[in-house]
């Protein structure tokens, strides 16, 4: 049963199916109900499931995310939508101090079947307060699980898996992916939620990316082929945990690795990936692991400058070629 869906439609499908199957699933967030969601992810669900299961909240990120935590303690499966990751900063206490700590601090007594969905990333000229990535902040929190779907298929799979999990899952979406199109098979059994997938096989260099950067890595790989360089593209799909085995296997074959991330370079996800690959693959590597990352600048409003702060295919291709020349 495969069909072509937009990313936001795939998320909507996952929510709808999950809510139909289990009445402990409910959605809450700003404008998720009557309005249908800022990115249309919850469209139609308010009419179908009613206000108690699709709850429009006031603008109180800290407390409605905490509400999700409290409800999850009783076995409910709340799906909290935070309109953008920038606003999740107001909910960090609920996420970091509560959701990831309560099962542990209680000695393992309580479930935490909470899903927090939010888009991150740089969209189009939304300026510094609405263009952050922030995934690296959550990566350092034990008990946190972060899924980063890059395709409609993964959006569908990973959201359904997250809702079924009894652990707190942070589903990091991307504002520029909501209207990307892809094939979604609703029958095929999904891979484990945190498994990395090889999107393109190759033997010259491993391009490691997540979220929207996977699309850029694939485009770069096509251009590299024209230059006679056969690149392998790995979609991490998860930032905590990270599927090291898939990464290490690939580097064992290509002997070169380039990490592509939209987040700021300093202390971003790439820093951890480089460190791990260096520890595990030092003898396999013919060159230091490279990084193409966002500049260490807040996003400028000006469109031309904004683009300069981000990785693009040119920069990925250049970095890959230079890395192979070393």
């Amino acid at each position: 049963m495969s069909e072509t869906l937009l990313y936001h439609q795939a998320l909507n499908r996952a929510l709808d199916e999950s809510m139909a199957a289990d009445d402990s699933v409910f959605i809450l967030g700003e404008d998720v109900g009557l309005y249908g969601g800022s990115y249309r992810v919850t469209e139609g669900l308010y009419a179908k499931y009613g206000e108690w299961r699709v709850r429009d909240t006031p603008i109180s990120e800290g407390s409605f995310t905490g509400l999700g935590v409290g409800a999850a303690l009783t076995g409910m499966r709340p799906v909290v939508e935070i309109m953008t990751i920038n606003f999740a900063l107001l909910a960090l206490d609920a996420i970091v101090n509560m959701a990831t700590k309560i099962p542990f601090m209680s000695g393992g007594q309580f479930p935490m079947p909470l899903v927090i969905r939010t888009p991150g990333g740089v969209a189009r000229q939304l300026a510094a307060q609405h263009s952050q990535r922030l995934e690296q902040m959550l990566m350092n929190v034990p008990g946190m699980r972060i899924a980063v779907p890059s395709t409609p298929q993964d959006a569908y799979w990973q959201l359904k898996q997250a809702i079924q999990s009894d652990e707190a899952i942070f589903l990091l979406e991307h504002e520029l992916l909501y209207f990307s199109e892809g094939t979604v098979d609703t029958r095929m059994p999904p891979p484990p939620m945190h498994r990395a997938l090889v999107r393109r096989e190759g033997d010259a260099i491993t391009l490691l990316a997540y979220s929207r950067m996977v699309l850029l890595a694939e485009q770069a790989a096509h251009r590299l082929v024209e230059m006679g360089i056969d690149a392998e593209v790995i979609d991490l799909r998860s930032l905590r945990p990270i599927d090291w085995r898939t990464c290490i296997q690939s580097v064992g074959k290509t002997h070169h690795a380039l990490v592509i991330e939209e987040d700021h370079r300093f202390s971003g996800a790439g820093a951890e990936i480089v460190a791990q690959l260096t520890e595990h693959c030092f003898n396999d590597l013919d060159a230091p692991v490279g990084r193409v990352a966002g500049l260490d600048l807040p996003a400028p409003y000006n469109g031309r400058l904004e683009a300069l702060t981000l990785p693009d295919t040119d920069r990925i291709v250049d970095a890959a070629v230079r890395l192979l020349e070393e």
């Binding site: 709850r55 407390s63 905490g66 935590v69 409290g70 409800a71 303690l73 009783t74 206490d93």
Partner: peptide, 14 residues
């Protein structure tokens, strides 16, 4: 922190 936890449990009850 006790308020949001409490209203979350209460939401489940309601």
């Amino acid at each position: 922190e006790t308020y949001p936890v409490a209203i979350g449990i209460a939401y489940a009850i309601a």
